[in-house]
Computed example of a mutant assay.
Amino acid sequence: MIKFFRQIRQELLSENKIWKYLKYALGEIVLVVIGILIALQINNWNDNRKELMRSKEYLEEIVKDLKLDTTNYNFSIAKLSSDIAIEEWALSQSTYSINQMDSVWKSFGGFYWENPMNDRTFQKIQNSGNSTLLGFEPLSDELTFYYTEMRNLLDSYTTWDKREVTQRQEYMRDLEHVIEISNYQLAILGKGLVKKNFETRQDSLQIKSLSIDFINSTRGRNHLKNNYTRHLRLKNVFERLNQNALSLIAKIEVELAD
Rank of each mutant, 00 (worst) to 15 (best):
G109N: 14
S107K: 00
K124P: 00
L133N: 01
T200L: 13
D155K: 09
L133T: 01
S107R: 00
P116I: 01
W113I: 04
N118G: 03
L189A: 11
L193E: 05
Y146C: 06
Q123F: 03
G129S: 09
E164I: 03
S182P: 03
Q202I: 02
D102K: 07
S156E: 15
S107V: 02
M172P: 00
E137W: 04
D174K: 08
N152T: 14
L193M: 07
E176R: 12
Q202P: 00
D102S: 07
E199I: 12
R168A: 02
R151Y: 06
G129H: 07
S156H: 11
Y146A: 06
D102M: 03
E170K: 08
I188M: 09
Y157A: 10
R201Q: 10
Q185I: 06
N152Y: 15
D155G: 07
L153F: 11
K124G: 01
N130S: 09
E176K: 08
N99S: 15
N197T: 03
D102F: 12
Y147M: 03
L175R: 04
S204F: 13
T166G: 02
L153E: 14
F136G: 09
Q167R: 10
L154R: 04
E199G: 07
H177A: 15
M150A: 12
T158C: 10
M150P: 11
S204W: 08
L193Y: 01
D141N: 12
E114M: 03
L139K: 01
M172I: 11
R163F: 08
V104M: 03
Q100S: 06
E142R: 13
H177G: 01
E199A: 15
S140L: 00
N99L: 04
Y171A: 05
T200P: 03
Y146K: 12
N183I: 05
L193V: 04
W113L: 13
M150G: 07
S97A: 10
D155P: 01
S182M: 14
L193W: 02
E170W: 11
L133D: 00
R168H: 02
N152D: 15
R173E: 13
K162P: 01
Y184F: 15
P116D: 04
S182L: 05
L133F: 00
Q100W: 09
I179L: 11
H177M: 12
K191Q: 09
D155T: 12
M117V: 14
L133G: 01
G129N: 04
T132W: 06
E164S: 11
S128K: 04
M172G: 05
N183G: 09
A187Y: 11
D203Y: 01
N118T: 02
Q185A: 15
E199T: 15
N152A: 14
G110H: 04
T200V: 14
R173A: 09
K106L: 15
F136C: 13
G192R: 01
Q126P: 00
W105G: 03
L154F: 06
R173V: 08
S156I: 09
N197S: 12
T132D: 11
S204K: 13
N127I: 07
N115A: 09
Q126M: 10
T200F: 02
A187M: 06
R163G: 11
R120W: 02
I179M: 08
D141R: 10
E149G: 07
Y157P: 00
W113M: 05
L175G: 04
I179V: 11
